[in-house]
């Protein structure tokens, strides 16, 4: 079946099978490798993308279900080929080591801060509960997100 996806503002028409997930299609058919696969069962959150504005775990979404929707991956946060302040905050705070989990955390943080730039530490923790990082110990990630909040205040 043919589906239409808008990924980071660009429209794609892709031929998919019912048993392909959004994760499969983004990586293998559209070629966006920043979306990682970890557990394939909803536990690690590494496959997180924004689907119509909301963070979801793309290994548990069928490509067919996403037909007609808008997807944002971490590349979509960049402006004119430059990193967004949130992305820079991750680098500045040492919130990245191997980087495998980074796009999932950045996308989730972007959603969180766009909704509420006055988030508390607890709200940050609650939002990233479902994401696993094997390197940083989370502290730096939390700090990066809190530090980036100021860029979301209008």
């Amino acid at each position: 079946m043919k589906i239409t996806l808008t990924v980071n503002g660009k429209k794609y028409e892709v031929d998919v099978k019912p048993n392909e997930t959004l994760l499969d299609v983004l990586r293998d058919k559209i070629g966006i490798k920043s979306v990682k696969a970890g557990c394939w069962r909803g536990e690690c959150g590494i496959c997180t993308v924004l689907l119509d504005g909301k963070p979801v775990k793309s290994c548990l979404v069928l490509a067919a279900e996403a037909d007609g929707s808008e997807i944002v991956t971490v590349e979509g946060l960049m402006k004119d080929g430059r990193l967004a302040p949130l992305q820079k905050a991750f680098i500045e705070h040492g919130a990245i080591q191997c980087g495998f989990c980074t796009s999932a955390f950045v996308l989730t943080a972007h959603w969180l801060l766009s909704r509420n730039p006055n988030v508390t530490r607890e709200e940050v923790i609650e939002a990233i509960n479902g994401l696993i990082c094997r390197c940083t110990g989370y502290e730096q990630i939390i700090e990066a997100i809190l530090a980036a909040a100021k860029y979301y205040k209008k």
Binding site: G45, P55, V56, L60, T108, A127, G130, L131
Partner: peptide, 9 residues
């Protein structure tokens, strides 16, 4: 129940 990402679905 589960986590924020899963509760969006």
């Amino acid at each position: 129940l589960a986590d924020m990402q899963l509760r969006n679905r």
